[in-house]
């Protein structure tokens, strides 16, 4: 379990195990030049914000803007939420990629953020993942904090 145990929930950290990281990179590179999107799941019983599984979803944006926007169907999201709940998982947050753009929140990202959930952004340049970042909007005042990825 190396250093994971030191990380507690709400310490502004999210744990991305190596195998999950690799999986995310593959998804983002495969979707390039379009944006990919998906759900990050963690174990309900865990004290950690640790990603245990991901589910990649269809980008529901109009075909012509798929390279700059993503959208997840609310009903599809809910059905995954319920399926995973039965196995003891809960939604920690979401992932999406920024093809040929920086791994920072865009105005559209900020406007659409649901408070208290993690948003993982994968920067893909010319088909290769070059950087990633994670963010969370705080429930109390809608301020946004950058989250450490460990």
């Amino acid at each position: 379990m190396n250093g994971d145990l030191k990380v507690r929930k709400y310490d502004n950290q999210i744990v991305l195990p190596k195998d999950i990281c690799t999986q995310i990179e593959q998804v983002a590179e495969k979707a390039y030049p379009n944006e990919c999107c998906g759900i990050l799941f963690g174990a309900v019983e865990s004290d950690l914000d640790k990603v245990e599984a991901i589910e990649v979803l269809d980008n529901m944006s109009t075909q012509s803007i798929k390279d700059s926007y993503y959208m997840i169907s609310p009903l599809e999201l809910f059905s995954y939420e319920q399926d995973y709940q039965k196995q003891g998982y809960e939604i920690l947050g979401f992932l999406h990629s920024h093809p040929d753009a920086s791994a920072i929140l865009s105005a559209a990202d900020k406007a659409q953020m649901v408070p208290e959930l993690f948003y993982l952004i994968i920067e893909v340049r010319q088909g290769k993942v070059t950087s990633q970042s994670a963010w969370r909007k705080n429930k109390s005042d809608d301020s946004i904090t950058e989250i450490n990825i460990t």
């Binding site: 997840i72 609310p74 999201l77 753009a101 865009s106 559209a108 659409q112 948003y119």
Partner: peptide, 14 residues
């Protein structure tokens, strides 16, 4: 009645 989030966003302008 279902209350759901719409998860969406886009990349920043370069």
């Amino acid at each position: 009645v279902l209350l759901l989030p719409l998860i969406a966003g886009g990349k920043p302008n370069e």
